[in-house]
Amino acid sequence: MNLLRRKFLKTATFVGAAVTVGAGALVPQRAIGAYMKAAFEAKDVNGALSASLGSDQHSASDAIKLKAPDIAENGAVVPVTVSSTMSNVDAISIVAEANASPLTSTYQLSAACEPYVSTRIKMGKTSNVIAVVKADGKLYSSTKEVKVTIGGCGG
């Protein structure tokens, strides 16, 4: 009886290991052009940027225009528009600093695309919104603070 239990445990361990290996093998495949799960699971801004754009080194640039409200009365819907005058922009990420997972979204732009995206994001509380643009392999950013007043009568 004891022997049977051993055998069962052994088999269970083996199956467990096989599953782990299988999952591990899938990760690199997904990382190329597929959904960036790790980037959205990152809990800090640098982790989110490294996973989504390949680096956390970014410099502030005037060539990026980040349009977001000064005060958002409803944190569930914050309109954000990012545009840039740079050329060779191939990716844009929008980060809300204080969110549980800071990366809100990242956009892969083809050569035909203008460096422009506009969307609506959720923000848990007042924090900086950072637009990070990848141009010629380097990262440039623009930051704006958005005050969030939930359920209040405005700022």
Partner: peptide, 14 residues
Amino acid sequence: NVVMTANWGGAISK
């Protein structure tokens, strides 16, 4: 032809 791909997390509005 794919012109744009967006990766979204849960922080995009409803």
